[in-house]
Structures are given as structure tokens and as C-alpha cells.
Design a binder for these strands. Structure first.
Ligand code: DCP
Ligand code: MG
Length: 790
DNA sequence: ATCCTCCCCTAC
DNA sequence: TAAGGTAGGGGAGGAT
């Protein structure tokens, strides 16, 4: 099957006459749109760019007026509900049935369009939400550690370690000072997370150039199953936007037949695909006059008629850092922090599972669990500054390109001093420097991270009944057997950081003491500070750590679901509304705020429990946060507590809705996944940066290299695969703007699954099928961007 | 209902 | 310069 994401005019590749009919209708409509757009005054602000609307039912401004307003200002209009491509639905009111049908769409009243036009800017649609839930929201109610070690892959290139580092650290030390002091920004977990696909969040920037990305993904499947080769059929990519993208996924089966009980995913592929009934447009480079492309589409460089990819590759430096250069894949993986993060996680899971395999399962199920969550403070940044007093008082960030001031690489980790300026993990350097001009950029030290992590895990394993590796710098430990739980049925009246307790029970340590001991031990062993949260479940342990950061600890004071925990989760709200609450760490004594220095204020803010936002909950990212905001106007946990479980489930889904309902009350029954169990289900390799091709030969080499990578990983875990999924990205033609250097830029994504002739880990076989799957799309190599996923 | 497949989303 | 990877939970919607 071919799958395409994003708004491609041909996206809904529906088969049969029905689909053909709709497709024609759609094309016709888009032609009309182009005409309308062409007639529009050229200077209309394109406020609806990227908006694709479907109008349902009768509307106040008649539908054609709405259409004109939208199309003339860069938006698109769909005559039929094309679920995959629409961004919004316009409706004055909805029947019960429609409400249900549109549950997962953004439905706004017509005046959203009208008012936006008046304001000459795109207003937030949720202020015009047709489905807006009425009221109800703001009610006031309310051990064998020594064996632990990474088997280092060939060698971690240590970045331009010495050179750059020496220069930037020692050399510049005189100019800068590093500071360990943190400003509160600790709260925000919002480390700007990387968005893998075209995403509005991209740091507020729009893609202006092409992005590259290739991805190969293999899914593990049971070894015994045999399947047919998925011979690629040819399909032509319609006029669609320019960019081609493709990826392949391979489903792999465990070599040990038993493992993945053949969930033979492959079976789905057995039927040979029939090529989509679309006329092949062969990889024509599109200049695109494709329908649906909004104004402004004119290629950025009107003067240079060469293909954008060729223009990019004409810059020597770009060539040297793109996939046209042999050895690109290896080089990329040596430098990709996200690749390291993923690799480390897999390895740590494997290692800790192995270590814990023998020992009996201790707890994890009991009602009175004691869960400890440990997480290094700004890990990469801490490693950079440890033992370097001259760096302690400076805002620093770990990123590539520490050499010049023109670098716009992404920050992997910044220290808390930098966060005080608003700098965040994941932020691009130019933006970070605009917020914090004195930001010192230091290089990665991948080897160090590994070594430190091993020491870290050794220590934690010595305390663990059960341990779950979360990441290179973070773990969950069940310490029930050696820690006296303090939050039984009776509500704990105090709580708070650094909980003192002089209990010296031999076997049952006080949580506060335990946390102190662990933190100190970690610091002694690694020179880096970690924060610790201890609580009766995983959720509260993580929230405790968040509250403890940086360089602190927090013992959750009360049991899940209790009134006190509800108040704790509300943060300042409860402090304001109920002065009788005694758990306020910050004393009233220093109320003379006028005389306070900023530092003092900062300090106090750090100490006072912060109001938790929904984004603080594990599992709640940008999308869920937006949904809660749009549908319920909910931002904080306090507000979330006011919404019924039914409503949450209706909007967010059964599982997620229940999770949200429980989480905002501190309830979480999930257990530690110590990974002694289940085998991996898939193995994949993908690259979405620097992917640019001039000819098929380069594509083949790239696929070959990725196939080798996947093959290597399969062999490492002694598994084989038979099902493969190829994912590809194809650049959008019309987009203008700027995006990450050599990134994939605006793309459409495509996926195609196939079957290998047998369970295998042979790179040649994998590569062959990958080529077949990619060939199916018949994309112009110049438009290939990234993500060849096998 | 339940299962399955193809995504989207999340986390570090 | 720059290195936007990757595994797994879960939802939508069609097949059974
Ligand atoms: N967008 C991101 C987020 C994290 N990381 C890496 C660098 C971090 O140091 C490490 C750990 O991630 P954390 O989320 O734990 O962030 P920090 O440890 O940097 O800060 P803190 O835990 O104090 O919030 O993962 C990254 O490369 N890119
Ligand atoms: Mg950390």
C-alpha cells in the first residue's frame, strides 16, 4: 500500500470508480481555486496559508464567500470531506451525529474566517470552536554491578574533542565563567522536542528549503514464517508536490522462533499490491503548478531555474555533508545525538534486563510501593562543566558547531543558568543566542556520557529491587524493600524536599535519607549532579523529580488520589485558595518582597512548588496539550481535575482519557518495565538529514548503507526479519522559507511494505527489496529527501 | 466485540 | 556550517 501523509492533492489514493470520481472532483475544484487565487488582489495577506478547510452545512456567510476569503488568502478549500488532508471544518452548528463524526477534527464557526479576515491575521481557531464544551470547566470544586558495561561500538568519535574542546573551554575560560546556579526554568519540561516531520512547532520557523531524510525499517517477525517477496509494483506519483520521500520498513522475526509468536504482520502484504490507478508522472521534476498550491508558491529563486536540490549541492560544503558523499551514513551516525540516545537506551535495557534476569522479582506489584526516579541535571551540559570551576558560572549549551557564532545547530542540553534566559534543550543556536548572547557552546563528549552512565547504573542497581532504564541519564528504581513508605493511608502532613528523619532502621531507610545518599554517591562517582524523586508510583516519582530539579530531591508527601495529593498537583492554586495548607515550603517571613533581590525571588520561586501544567504529565506532549486547550481550555492540572473522565475519553480516546483523569489525581498503577521480558518487535534505521541525491547510483549506495546498518543491528541481537517497510520523504515543491540546514524541509511522506523472500539479516537481500519498494514510487531522485526506513 | 494495519504521538 | 533517531503506546477505521 502506498501511504502518503501531508496535504498532497492526490493523497486519498482511493481505488475504483468511486475514488476516481472523487479525485476528479477534487482536481476540478482545485483548478477553480487557482483561478480564484489568481484573481485575488496580489497584496492580500496570506493568512490562511497551510489551512485546508471543509465546510459543513449552511453557513452565515454563504459557502462561496467563505471559499473566496480562504482561497484568496492562501488557504485551500475542499468540497468533500477528505479526512486525510483537511486541517479544519467550518460549521455553524452540528447535529449529534456530525458531532460524533467530527469528534477528531477542529471544527470552527464561520466567523473564525470572517473575523480572521477582519483582523487580517489568523486568529486561534479554538476561540470559535463549534464544539466547545459549555461551562463545567471552571468550577472551583474542587548488584552484580561490576559486569555492567557497554560494549562500545567501534569507536565513538569523541567529537572534535580535544581540539575544539580545549579551545573552547580552556582557551575561552578567561572570557567566560560558567555557572552552576540555576534560575528556575527548571519547571519546564518543555525542552523543545524535536518534531520528526513537517511540523508547525519547528521552533516557529518555516521550512524554506529542502530537507532530506531517508529511513529504513525492519520489523522483527517470527523466524519460521515464510513469505513472499513483495515485489514492487510501479506506481507513479501524481503531480503531487514535488518532494519525494520514501522509507521502507522491514518486519523482522526473532531468530528464535518462539519469540514473537508469529504475529506475522507480513500476512498483510501477501496480496500483491495493485498499483494505484494513477498515471505515472515519472519523476518529473516539478515546477509545480500543481493544483492547490497557494500563492506565494513561486519558487524562491525565480532567477535560478535549476532544481533546488542541484542548487543546494552546488555549494561545496553542502555536497561534503550530504548523502552524495560516500561514507555519509557512517559519518552521520557518528555525530547524531539522537541516534546515540536511541542506541544507548536499547543497550541499557538489554544490559539491565540481563543483570536482573536471575534475581527474583521482588516487588513492583504491591500497593505500597516506593519508587525512586533519578535523572541527571542537564546531563550533557553537566558533563561539560564538571571539574571546571571556570565554567560553573557561565550559561553553556552542548551543540555541534561550537566553533563559530554563525552556527545554528540544535542544543542537546543547556545548563540551568542558560535556562534562566529562556534557552531550552532542542532549541536552535541562533534563537538561543538571541536570548542569551553570552551563551558558551561546547562540544559533545559521547564517550564520557557512556562512562558516566555506567557508574550511575551500577550505583542504582545496588539499591534496586527492580530497575527500569529510561535513558542514558535517567532511571526508575523500585526501592520498596529498603525504604519505609511514608504515605500510607494516613495523610502525611508535611512533605517536601530533603525531608529529615532520624530513623536508622537497618533495613528500612527513610526516603529522604535514601535520596540524599544516592545523590551523593552519584556525585562522588561521576562529578555530576542528579536529582531524585521518591513517591508511591512512577508518575508521582517523575513529577517529584521535576519539582526537585535542579540539584535537589523531593519526597512526595501523600498518597495517590488523596486530597493532599490533589492539592500538591495544583501547586500555587491551592496555596492561594487555601491558606491553611501547611505544606508551603516558602515561609511567610520573607514576605517583604519589595526588598527582595531578584536572586532571592528566583530562589524562592524555585523552592515553592510550581503549578503543574498538563504538559508536565508523562505522555502529554504538544498534541495532547493542544487538544486539552482547544477542547477544554485546560492548561493546568488543577483545571484538568475539573473535567470528567467521560469527556476526556470522548476527546482523547479511551486509554488516554483515563490516563489523564488518573494522572491529574496522582494515580498511576503502571509497573516498572524492567525489560526482562518481551523481545523487540522491530529494528529500523533512518536518516532525515543531509539526504540529497543527483542520480540513482547515489540512491542505491545510500540504501545499501542503510541496509548494512539494519543488518548489523539484526545480527547484534541475533534476529532476522522478513517484513520490510520502506518510508520515503519527497520534498514539497511549492514551499518557500527556511529550515534546518540540510534538513528535510517540507515533505510528504510515503510508506510501502514488502516481504523479504525469507527471514534474513542479509544486507543484500534487504537492500534489493528496499530498492524495489522505492522504485515503486518512481520519484525523481532530486526530490528524495529522507527517511529510508527499512 | 475483537483483531489488524497503518499511521500519529511521545520520550530521551 | 551540521549531523531532524527510533521503539513502542495507542487511536482510527476497516476486516473478521
Ligand atoms: N531535545 C533533546 C533532549 C535531550 N537530549 C539529550 C541531552 C540531555 O542532556 C539528555 C537527557 O535529557 P533530559 O530530558 O534529562 O534533559 P537534561 O538532562 O539535559 O536536563 P534536565 O534533566 O535537568 O531537565 O538527552 C537531546 O539531545 N535533545
Ligand atoms: Mg536529565
Amino acid at each position: 500500500m502506498e501511504r502518503e501523509r501531508e496535504d498532497d492533492p492526490y493523497e486519498a489514493i482511493e481505488y475504483g470508480d468511486f475514488g476516481t470520481y472523487f479525485r476528479h472532483k477534487k482536481q476540478k475544484l482545485q483548478l477553480q481555486q487557482d483561478e480564484i487565487a489568481a484573481l485575488a488582489p496580489p497584496d492580500l495577506a496570506q493568512i490562511f496559508e497551510g489551512i485546508v478547510v471543509y465546510v459543513n452545512g449552511y453557513t452565515d456567510p454563504p459557502i462561496h464567500e467563505i471559499r473566496n476569503m480562504i482561497v484568496q488568502r492562501g488557504g485551500e478549500f475542499r468540497q468533500y470531506l477528505s479526512k486525510s488532508s483537511i486541517t479544519h471544518i467550518i460549521a455553524s452548528n452540528l447535529t449529534q451525529a456530525k458531532m460524533k463524526e467530527f469528534r477528531n477534527y477542529k471544527v470552527a464557526r464561520p466567523d473564525w474566517i470572517v473575523e480572521s479576515v477582519k483582523a487580517n491575521k489568523l486568529l486561534p481557531w479554538h476561540n470559535f470552536n463549534t464544539l466547545r464544551i459549555p461551562g463545567s470547566l471552571h468550577r472551583l470544586e474542587s548488584q552484580s554491578l561490576t559486569s555492567l558495561s557497554f560494549t562500545r561500538s567501534p569507536s565513538i568519535p569523541q567529537e572534535p574533542p580535544s581540539a575544539v574542546q580545549a579551545a573552547s573551554l580552556a582557551g575561552s575560560a578567561s572570557n567566560d565563567t560558567y555557572s552552576a546556579s540555576e534560575i528556575d526554568a527548571s519547571r519546564d519540561p518543555t525542552t523543545e522536542t524535536h518534531q520528526p516531520s513537517p511540523d508547525p512547532l519547528d521552533d516557529g520557523e518555516f521550512f524554506t528549503e529542502d530537507l532530506d531524510l531517508d529511513q529504513l525499517e525492519l520489523q522483527l517477525t517470527p523466524p519460521n514464517t515464510i513469505n513472499n517477496t513483495g515485489v514492487a509494483s510501479y506506481v507513479k506519483e501524481p503531480l503531487s508536490d514535488t518532494p519525494l520521500s520514501g522509507h521502507e520498513n522491514l518486519n523482522v522475526l526473532p531468530t528464535e522462533s518462539a519469540d514473537l509468536a508469529n504475529t506475522d504482520r507480513a500476512s498483510s502484504f501477501r496480496s500483491p499490491d495493485t498499483p494505484p490507478p494513477i498515471a505515472p508522472t515519472n519523476g518529473t521534476v516539478s515546477i509545480d503548478s500543481s493544483p492547490g498550491i497557494p500563492h506565494g508558491v513561486i519558487a524562491a529563486d525565480v532567477l535560478d531555474t535549476r532544481h533546488p536540490t542541484l542548487i543546494e549541492l552546488s555549494v561545496p560544503w553542502n555536497r561534503l555533508n550530504s548523502s552524495v558523499l560516500p561514507g555519509f551514513v557512517e559519518k552521520f551516525y557518528q555525530s547524531s545525538r539522537l541516534h546515540y540516545l536511541s542506541t544507548w537506551k536499547a543497550k541499557l535495557r538489554e544490559i539491565t534486563a540481563e543483570i536482573q534476569k536471575d534475581k527474583p522479582r521482588l516487588s513492583s506489584i504491591s500497593k505500597d510501593r516506593v519508587i525512586m526516579h533519578i535523572d541527571f541535571d542537564c546531563f550533557f551540559a553537566s558533563v561539560a562543566t564538571r571539574g571546571k570551576p571556570e565554567l560553573q558560572n557561565r550559561p553553556i549549551a552542548v551543540a555541534h558547531g561550537s566553533g563559530g557564532s554563525t552556527s545554528n545547530s540544535e542544543i542537546a542540553s543547556c545548563n540551568y543558568l542558560a535556562r534562566g534566559f529562556g534557552v531550552k534543550n532542542g532549541m536552535q543556536l541562533l534563537k538561543a543566542r538571541s536570548l542569551c548572547p553570552d551563551l558558551l557552546v561546547v562540544p559533545y563528549e559521547f564517550r564520557e556520557y557512556e562512562d558516566i552512565s555506567i557508574e550511575f547504573y551500577k550505583i542504582l542497581l545496588s539499591y534496586a529491587d527492580e530497575l527500569q532504564a529510561v535513558s542514558i541519564d535517567e532511571a526508575l528504581v523500585d526501592v520498596t524493600s529498603r525504604c519505609r513508605s511514608t504515605w500510607g493511608q494516613t495523610e502525611n502532613t508535611h512533605g517536601g524536599p530533603g525531608n529529615e528523619n532520624d530513623d536508622n532502621d537497618m533495613t528500612q531507610t527513610d526516603p529522604g535519607k535514601l535520596a540524599e545518599r544516592v545523590r551523593e554517591e552519584i556525585f562522588q562517582a561521576t562529578g555530576c549532579h542528579a536529582s531524585v524523586g521518591i513517591a508511591p508510583n512512577i508518575l508521582l516519582a517523575k513529577l517529584s523529580t521535576k519539582r526537585a530539579k535542579p540539584h535537589g530531591q523531593y519526597i512526595w508527601p501523600s498518597a495517590p488520589g488523596t486530597e493532599q495529593t490533589l492539592r500538591e498537583l495544583r501547586g500555587p492554586v491551592s496555596l492561594l485558595s487555601s491558606l491553611d495548607v501547611e505544606c508551603t515550603p516558602s515561609s511567610d517571613s520573607d514576605k517583604d518582597s519589595q526588598s527582595r533581590t531578584q536572586d532571592a525571588q528566583v530562589e524562592e520561586r524555585q523552592r515553592a512548588p510550581k503549578e503543574f501544567s498538563v504538559k508536565d504529565l508523562p505522555g502529554v506532549g504538544y498534541k495532547t496539550m493542544q487538544d486539552l486547550q482547544d477542547r477544554f481550555s485546560v492548561h493546568t492540572l488543577y483545571e484538568l481535575q475539573q473535567v470528567s473522565k467521560e469527556e476526556l475519553q470522548r476527546i482523547c480516546g479511551m486509554k488516554t482519557g483515563e490516563m489523564l483523569f488518573n494522572s491529574c489525581r496522582g494515580i498511576d498503577d503502571s509497573t516498572l518495565a524492567s525489560d526482562r521480558e518481551k523481545a523487540r518487535q522491530s529494528v529500523s534505521a533512518e536518516i532525515s538529514w543531509g539526504v540529497r541525491f543527483e542520480n540513482q547510483e547515489q540512491v542505491n549506495i545510500f540504501l545499501q548503507d542503510l541496509s548494512k546498518e539494519v543488518s548489523k543491528r539484526l545480527k547484534e541481537i541475533d534476529r532476522k526479519a522478513k517484513s520490510i517497510v520502506m518510508k520515503v520523504m519527497k520534498r514539497k515543491e511549492y514551499v518557500h522559507g527556511h529550515w534546518k540546514h540540510l534538513g528535510h524541509g517540507p515533505v510528504d511522506q510515503f510508506a510501502r511494505t514488502g516481504q523479504l523472500p525469507m527471514y534474513t539479516d542479509d544486507p543484500e537481500i534487504i537492500a534489493k527489496e528496499a530498492r524495489n519498494l522505492l522504485q515503486y514510487f518512481k520519484f525523481d531522485v532530486l526530490d528524495l529527501r529522507g527517511k529510508f526506513n527499512f
